[in-house]
Write a protein that binds this DNA or RNA. Structure first.
Lengths: 146, 146
DNA sequence: CCTAAAGTTTAGCATAGGCTAAGTTATATG
DNA sequence: CATATAACTTAGCCTATGCTAAACTTTAGG
């Protein structure tokens, strides 16, 4: 199996990686939203449009539009002018994101980067680490007092 | 300075991370293209639309459209129906990308993930690692026989 | 040198994810 | 309890990134 891996992967193999990245990107926004909604619910009992917009650094209208997509994807539920709730599926995704995020951030800290950088970089990286890489990071943490 | 870092960063600080991620994303595609063009030029002397499309796993027309943006950004030069060339700026970006990519991929391998996973994950991660994290990965490699 | 195949471009469409401006609903306060 | 303010929504715009189908160039073979 390992022997079959060529030094220069075929175009098909290459393109698979880029396709994964593109797929990651479309899932990414949804992940950020549900994670943030979960945080807001935990921190202050409810998630409101304005808080999400503020934390993400985007306009209110952008949040509204995105929330519609999330509702269509059955990750959240909402009534007009009311707070936002996560569906079971939404909570699952949020928990998963938090888990990943925590591991990546702790890993970066253990690797020796500053708190600030760990926080910022983990936000971007978390959506692109496979289960295998995440496990490797976990092992590294176990070895290095994570 | 470090003392000023609160445990729960303010919304403003949080939003900065997401803004960075969004900025990364717009730069990402350009990076992938110039890196691939550089590879094609090195491997076979010239970069053609079709090869880029094949390797990225997108339609030909998509590549054409993107190349127009890259030309507007002065990263490439091209004449109709001719091969694609990189500008000085384009080469700089490509080299930078390759350097990052190589470090991240080697780092993942050193961390213990499979070749296949390292290749795929590094493609997504490379655009989200700051200079500081990259340096930390470099140090790790130096310590662990990279 | 003519023509068929391969490669490139254009046109037109869709969706995602941004924005501002204007309208609507809830809520807090005098 | 009336209304000002804050929060939310709608409408309409833009760019990026994908697609297919059709048109145009280049190039290779006969």
């Amino acid at each position: 199996m390992a022997l079959a891996t060529k030094k220069i992967p075929s175009a098909k193999l290459r393109s698979a990686a880029f396709k994964r990245v593109r797929a990651d990107h479309s899932a990414e926004l949804a992940g950020d939203y549900v994670e943030m909604i979960a945080d807001l619910i935990d921190e202050r009992g409810e998630a409101r449009c304005t808080d999400i917009a503020l934390r993400l650094g985007v306009a209110n209208a952008t949040v509204v539009k995105t929330l519609k997509r999330l509702q269509a994807a059955e990750l959240i539920t909402q009534e007009p002018y009311r707070a936002i709730f996560l569906t079971v599926e939404g909570w699952k995704m949020a928990e998963d994101g938090r888990r990943k995020h925590a591991i990546v951030e702790k890993f970066l800290l253990a690797l020796g980067v500053s708190q600030e950088t760990a926080r910022i970089d983990s936000e971007g990286i978390e959506h692109h680490v496979s289960t295998e890489t995440l496990r490797a990071m976990g092992k590294f943490l176990a070895r290095n007092g994570g």
